[in-house]
């Protein structure tokens, strides 16, 4: 009896010692696709396999959809602009349909036929340059979503004018999150977080039952590790757009990557950061750019939307937060204050 008692005490000691090391740790993965760093932290017994499967699939999608891969379906549509329709697979067709939908809804702010202009500037390339006004005007004429014809019956895409081209960079990464969710489900992942160029997808809560803590970058800082706030999140996509993401400097002027389709130049928005939270990754991705371009005056029209929530920062460092995020977002930097006119905007 006494022996059992002491064995119990001993086991309790072992349990105390082990409690400190029993916390499950995630599998980390990193790869580069579509000129973007992809990082994953995945929990579960098949975590490594799931990470590998996601990385493999993302590379496949890049070869299918990238404007910069000459054999991609998008490159083929672009090459055949003004000539003939190109048959594409279901995945590409569905993404193009989404792209057309968001372009049409954006009142000209977002357009997936932006490629002639985006490649002219080359802001995401190794050799960006400030184009001439004439070059910009020539490219702007080619950006027109109405001249992209999608044939649902034959699954073809056709750009009516030669020189037109599609760039899915503003929507594809968010759209990939649906595919990633299916892979995590297939591999019975317990929980995961993936970051794809400005888009974060959280799959379930962490093994300890808490939500992921996502830092929202301070848009005024050069360092990506400087936070302005923290958002708790699970099972959704969080997409952020800011002018700090990609830019180049020429003759002392900073040129960022968010192009205004009215002027053809990087936009002069009165906002400095827009974060969109939604279950629909493509929507979050496309909308973060669109709302950035729409500026401050559009905030009341979407701050209280049923399909998505937002965290918007204006140039006076005032932060507008959707009521649905009020309980899970905190400002962590005194430079930023919650907007007074929040109630009015809502």
């Amino acid at each position: 009896m006494a022996k059992r008692k002491w064995a119990g005490v001993f086991l309790a000691c072992v349990a105390i010692l082990c409690s400190g090391c029993s916390k499950p740790s995630p599998t980390y993965s990193e790869c580069y696709v579509m000129d973007t760093q992809i990082t994953q932290q995945v929990y579960g017994r098949n975590a490594q396999k799931a990470c590998d499967a996601v990385n493999t699939r993302l590379k496949e999608l890049e070869s299918l959809l990238s404007l910069y891969v000459p054999t991609s379906q998008i490159s083929k549509i672009n090459e055949n602009a003004g000539k003939s329709p190109v048959k594409v697979d279901d995945y590409t067709f569905n993404l193009l349909q989404k792209g057309v939908f968001f372009s049409e809804q954006s009142n000209g702010l977002f357009d997936i036929t932006i490629a002639p202009l985006s490649t002219l500037w080359g802001i995401t390339s190794d050799h960006p340059k400030v184009p001439s006004e004439e070059e910009i005007a020539d490219c702007l004429r080619l950006v027109n979503i109405e001249n992209l014809v999608l044939d649902e019956e034959n699954h073809t895409a056709f750009l009516k004018e030669e020189g037109m081209a599609i760039d899915l960079g503003g929507i594809a990464k968010g759209y990939f999150c649906e595919e990633i969710k299916a892979i995590y489900t297939e591999y019975e992942v317990d929980s995961a977080l993936i970051s794809i160029g400005g888009n974060i997808y959280t799959y379930h809560q962490k093994p300890d039952g808490t939500s992921y803590r996502l830092g929202i970058r301070n848009p005024l800082s050069d360092s990506a590790n400087d936070l302005m706030g923290i958002l708790t999140s699970h099972d959704e996509v969080v997409a952020t757009t800011g002018t700090y993401e990609r830019y180049f400097v020429q003759d002392g002027v900073r040129y960022h990557h968010i192009l205004d389709l009215e002027t053809g130049y990087p936009c002069d928005s009165d906002l400095i950061s827009v974060t969109v939270v939604s279950n629909d990754g493509a929507l979050a991705d496309a909308l973060s750019t669109t709302l950035f371009l729409a500026g401050k005056e559009a905030i009341p029209s979407y701050i209280n939307h049923s399909d998505f929530s937002v965290i918007v920062i204006d140039e006076d460092n005032r932060v507008y937060v959707s009521p649905s995020l009020a309980d899970r977002f905190t400002i962590e930097n005194d430079t930023f204050t919650l907007a007074d006119e929040f109630e009015e905007a809502a």
Binding site: K23, Y28, E30, Y32, D35, Q37, T39, Q41, D126, L193, S195, G197, G198, I200, K206, Y212, R213, L214, G215, I216, R217, A224, N225, L227, I230, L231, V238, A239, T240, E245, T275
Partner: peptide, 28 residues
């Protein structure tokens, strides 16, 4: 822990790992 930096052209990153991280990642 949680801080990270990346050099995209050279595909090199440095991430600080540890248990005392304020966030799980940063939305950039």
């Amino acid at each position: 822990p949680g801080e990270t930096a990346v050099c995209m052209p050279n595909r090199v990153s440095v991430t600080i790992i540890g248990t005392d991280s304020k966030t799980d990642t940063i939305v950039n």
